[in-house]
Design a protein around this nucleic acid. Structure first.
Lengths: 337, 337
DNA sequence: AATATTGATGCAAACGATTTCGGGTCAAAG
DNA sequence: CTTTGACCCGAAATCGTTTGCATCAATATT
């Protein structure tokens, strides 16, 4: 408990706390010899400035909050790795929260962060998020905010996504070219942005090829893995079952694999599938999965660069209200062949 | 910027800051009507106490650091989910750091945390960690510390692992029973604790069945995925190639899948494999993978419970120097059949 | 030679909360 | 009529930094 603080250091050096502080911060007001003396003593006593005192005084925390819908997800893990890559250089810390796709949790987390605990928030909204008043509050309180992947269009700030529309389109065209006529679209929720964009791409691709589609081809799944498997299995059992599936998120592709096992249907013979996914082992699945993978790490590092610029340089403007698209990569594999 | 603080609240209510503080903290010294008036006003103005002022005064941060070797790993993600499940009930925050299996990074991270920024540290050491002086410093500074999975025996605190020895043993026996005679053991590094325990189990199982093994059957892999694939492929190409593999961590099992592709060898025909892994989709691989999966979520939540007890109750003793084992589960699948 | 300037340092206030100490009121008890 | 104690509240110190302003000596300027 005998913490070595700046006062203790000052006493040891027979200087005032202010001089010590300035010396450690390399102020021009302090003479070179004094600086060296102070720095040496600080090192010797292993002095570590108290972060809270500093934060209180400076009104900044050197901490950034990252809010994601789920942790067990390669995409989000990679994004965080990308963020950390940049922020750690600047000595920033990362508070990571998972909403577990629950809006109430999301609201609670956000409310914890409005008191200055973090200097900025990076988030991907939950699939249940429809009302966005809690996010507007963040914006109004002038806490720098960046969205990625699951973005919130209503808030005028910078958002990072990949070319979702284009890839929804391309993936659908790919399935069509492979001979699919009845392509179903699996999505988590009508609310989330990426779902919508990918869906638009899907719809436009069908339209372009003059393929009609039924409303019930657009399947809304839930949070429960089991329920999703059941739902998809039911669809696969149906008389009017799909010969192609576009899964808008990884977990639905996995549910489809399980459903295919249950129904004893085989990809790509009985139906083909393409999925948005950042799974590294997509190529090792049976059958290997055709994926559209986002540049997750780069999305993270780009966001962090933007943040660091804003937070470490003086007089930075607020984030522009724009959407930055980073291209995904499509890897064709057995599941759609 | 017009932050509503306790002084502002006090002025509005024509009370002193101390009374407001007491009222909000439900002190017995404040009359019921006053309390209600204060709480109502606080709610109306959406007052949020400044966390740094509080932390500075209270000398605690309500924040816990979680340090893991890598983020893109189901096991660690699940552990963090388990930790969060408990800590969020208590209003604690989680700072998450990845060492990327790098000791230097680990040292740096740890040094950032010695100034009171966090109330406790939960960690799994990097595979490169051999010298442990930086961890001893944490212990000496009396920052509560818990290890899990990759533990550090030298530090006298509580550690959480699963029954690694037993499972290394069982997995090896299983391979032997399936007819394997030349079982190789893949590990990340000789340093890490779990590797050692799992290795002991492997060795004892062989010994029990009177099977000799060569020193070079114990394969030390690296951090580079590519290098690992090459190394394993080379082993599979060898004349004295294995007919069984026990992978002590998930990423080596995956590397083995890739190596098998390269060498055109097929599991389980040409060789069988069992791996420690928390992959959810082990059953969807080709071939599906026999796994030993740790109760990751429970390890996380148990650690968090212990932490919360220590941090929220008065006069708690330091963590006992003991290792708590939580049983893993083995799922037999095609790869070892 | 008197004054202005510069350089190096110290004093004290501030950041926003909690808490120790102490003061005042009022009713019941002595 | 005083004493006691319960009850309610405010002033001020405190946590560890940073920083505006004051101080004081030495040097530069006129």
């Amino acid at each position: 408990m005998a913490e070595v603080n700046i006062k203790y250091l000052a006493a040891k050096l027979k200087l005032s706390p202010s001089t010590v502080s300035r010396a450690l911060n390399d102020s021009y007001e302090i003479s070179q010899p004094t600086k060296e003396r102070v720095v040496a003593m600080a090192k010797e006593l292993n002095y570590q400035p108290n972060p809270f005192a500093r934060s209180l005084r400076e009104q900044k925390s050197k901490t950034i909050a990252v809010i994601i819908p789920e942790r067990i997800n390669n995409f989000f893990s990679q994004v965080i790795d990308g963020i950390e890559e940049i922020t750690q250089e600047y000595g920033y810390h990362l508070l990571v929260y998972s909403t577990h796709e629950n809006v109430e949790t999301e609201r609670k987390i956000v409310s914890y962060l409005l008191n200055g605990r973090v200097d900025a928030i990076v988030m991907s909204v939950s699939s249940q998020t429809k009302k966005t008043d809690h996010l507007e509050t963040v914006f109004e309180k002038a806490v720098p905010l960046i969205f990625f992947d699951r973005i919130c269009q209503e808030i005028p700030t910078t958002k990072f996504i990949s070319n979702d529309y284009e890839n929804g389109f391309k993936a659908t065209i790919h399935l069509i070219e492979k001979g699919c006529k009845r392509i179903f679209f699996l999505m988590l929720s009508k609310e989330i942005s990426i779902g919508k964009e990918r869906l638009r791409g899907y719809q436009d691709a069908l339209k372009k090829h003059g393929l009609p589609y039924e409303e019930n081809w657009i399947v809304q799944c839930s949070q429960s893995e089991e329920a999703n498997i059941k739902l998809i299995a039911k669809i696969l059992y149906g008389l009017d079952r799909p010969d192609g599936i576009l899964a808008s998120v990884e977990k639905l592709a996995i549910a489809t694999y399980h459903a295919a096992r249950e129904t004893k249907l085989e990809m790509p013979k009985d139906f083909k599938m393409v999925s948005f996914s950042n799974m590294k082992i997509a190529g090792l699945l049976k059958p290997s999965l055709t994926t559209i993978s986002q540049p997750a790490f780069e999305i993270g590092s780009e966001m962090a660069k933007l943040l660091m610029k804003k937070l470490t340089k003086p007089n930075q403007p607020a984030f522009e209200n724009k959407v930055i698209q980073m291209p995904s990569q499509i890897d064709f594999r057995e599941s759609s062949n």
